[in-house]
Design a protein around this nucleic acid. Sequence first.
RNA 1: GCGAAAGUGGCGGAAUUGGCAGACGCGCUAGACUUAGGAUCUAGUGGGAAACCCCGUGAGGGUUCGAGUCCCUCCUUUCGCACCA
Length: 810
Amino acid sequence: MSDDSYNPGQIEPKWREYWISNHLHEARNDDPRPKYYCLDMFPYPSGSGLHVGHWRSYVLPDCWSRYKWLQGFNVLHPMGWDAFGSPAENDAIQKGIHPKVGTQRNVENFKRQLHEIGAMYDWSREVNTTDPDYYKWTQWIFLRMFKAGLAYKTLMPVNWCPSCKTGIANEDVVNGRCERCGTEVTKKELHQWMLRITTYADRLLAGLEELDWPEKVKTMQSNWIGRSEGAEVTFTAIAANGSHHLLKIFTTRPDTLFGATYMVMAPEHPLVTELTLPAHAAGVQAYVEKVKSERDIDRAAKTEKTGVFTGAYAINPVNGEKIPIWIADYVLMSYGTGAIMAVPGHDERDYEFAKKFRLEIREVISSERGVAQESYVGDGTMINSGQFTGTPSEEGKKAIVRWLAGRGLGRATVNYKLRDWVFSRQRYWGEPIPIVHCEKCGAVAVDEKDLPIRLPDVERYQPTGTGESPLAAIQDWVNVPCPKCGGPGKRETDTMPQWAGSSWYFLRYASPRAKDALITEQGKEWLPVDLYVGGVEHAILHLLYARFFTMFLHDIDVVDFEEPFLRLFNQGMITYVGKSGKAEKMSKSKGNVVNPDELVRDFGCDSLRMYELFVGPPELDALWNDNGIQGVHRFLKKAWHWVSMYNGQWKASPSREMLTQRHLLVKNVTERLDTFRMNTIVSSFMEFIGEVTSMKQAPDKETVETFLILIAPFAPHFAEELWQRTGRPPSIFFQRWPVWDEAYTTFDTVTVAVQINGKLRGTIEVRAEAPEESVLEAATKDPAITRFLDGRQIRKKVYVKNRILNLVVG
RNA sequence: GCGAAAGUGGCGGAAUUGGCAGACGCGCUAGACUUAGGAUCUAGUGGGAAACCCCGUGAGGGUUCGAGUCCCUCCUUUCGCACCA
């Protein structure tokens, strides 16, 4: 094998070594260049290592970071570990390995594999959420939230995963199953730490507007927050014993209040027992019990409405009418007030229920088709509505609310689907919640100077299943004096969810080793994140929590911005055909992973990097093709050969066509980079090499160097090596991104398509920018075209300069 | 059910503002070089036809000199949401 052949196995380790020993990728605070913060979502270091699907998500941000570097930015591109969480803990339970040890081992392996990607991570800023120096600040944020009244403990039914034996947040429940392990979620009453994320609902919603994020993600967040404006209306319910109770409901349609023909309370509503008439008690109780025993997933999947009458009635505040009160599970205790006024004429659900139980359906908003067949949910003019009859519904909403408010019977309110965040986990491997429970003082914050509250070693990692974490068993850790009164106290034994550490890690990279502050003044210069790259699976949870944390930290003057991620890019996943026989997301459990190690060995890291980009549009899922990498590998070999062959024999003055190819390449690559069309960038390079090799002439040195700089973000080892071999000192990344001159990106002659009556009949070569007359003249001389013109009159000519001439003949 | 995105060769995918559909790559075919080819190079490769040509971007309509691109109806796939009053 001659020295001139492309041998990635030799050059790649060499350049990685060079970058590291020269600290090339360490972002320096004293660098005068403008900052650019490019962030990859940090991984959970699992035991199974990286596959080509993971690779894809790291390649794009790395190319982008290298591009920004070449553009003259001081780039921060860090990496770290989201290392708390159940897999390490499950390993601990099963194999008795301390999670710290298992995590450490996985981190080593991940780091080795990430190294092979050739990415320019600044490892000097590595963070790990399980490091006490890191979680000290996670705990610190919690304490500040506690002091601000945003963290509170309350007894509430929570989603309980019987397999993980821990309470989990609403956000962790997907189709009634635990997001982590897939087990069906049940309910359990537990004292839980909660974070008042709902306080930030409006800001979380409003903040979305200015963000350069995919619309899809913004929509998902906005739906999750689920803001709806309406009114709280107070009905009077008459209990079995004749006593009166205020029964509050939430509605977005106060304009339909006159159409309320019954009311519904959720089965869990506190007034159920009180209101139910003795004659109905047995039925109601049976129904409530039945609903309770049902899992959420079944309750949601039910197709037909169920319910039971309480025997009690309520008085409609607008007309004094007595309407029956029902119990039904289509009303949820967790939203609004847990009770509704039912307006079957103008609500689909109420309509269905009313039909089934033969309740009155009353039309109070006029519409063409009425409410005989189905409910009418649109706007219209109010009818059958007392003094409001004739009012347009939009106006009526306000008018009725005003009327109610004047009598103390209602007010305008806003409701959110967003719930407060269940922040407790009854597991071992998480940040201890820095609270001490004192009999005298209640829940007391640990003194900030005592942070971090370290996670103690335990003998057994098993969740107890009783609602207490394994930490509860460690007496000498649990029993501590109350920080306030010094009396006997007990530490909180719940730990934080995995989301805690990942909700602010992007801030820590800015000053990862700061001892006295979460972020130093100098560190602030790096923030916020300019580009955040990661999978769409984090569209709601992680991104919402991270925004919430950031807004809070803004409010306590830790950071000076509210939105942490200015631009977001969602990468598509790699799919591959596994045992199921169809293309699915690559994962170990599906048996369809492709290991990058062999590909790196056979083709080199640069080939794999470029193929990961070439495989398809970055925002879409892409089907892995084992042979595909051959194409980019051949291209790199050809390109290598082209540079090597003419090395040292550069042409002094490049031909016009060589210049055109050079400038065209700069233009294509730059424009396509800015819109992330990475797959077509690889095509551009291939076309360029195809063109310049077919010229069979030596290139000038500038063209070769331009090519190398352009390809450096994508095939960095390749570019560095040839840069050096063509006689320039490393590193190529100290060069500047080239610019193109439009004067060269055009050709002297252009091919114009000639259509007759809209059908392509031929093409002609004309001088670029040629006027219409000369193009027409050339066309009418071309025999391939003239035979369609014979004896026919040209009725219309359409000429688009340099592109097409369409002749309409008759 | 609601919302969003997407349907282009055997496959992955290209196509400024409507302007030569299928760039680039995989695969395939033929040839060259080879002891060999799963290396490399050259040529070809949407379908039909000997050819002139005809037909082709999920289906059907429409606008236009001209539609993958714009408008309407429908079908399929994927993803989100799913009793949130």
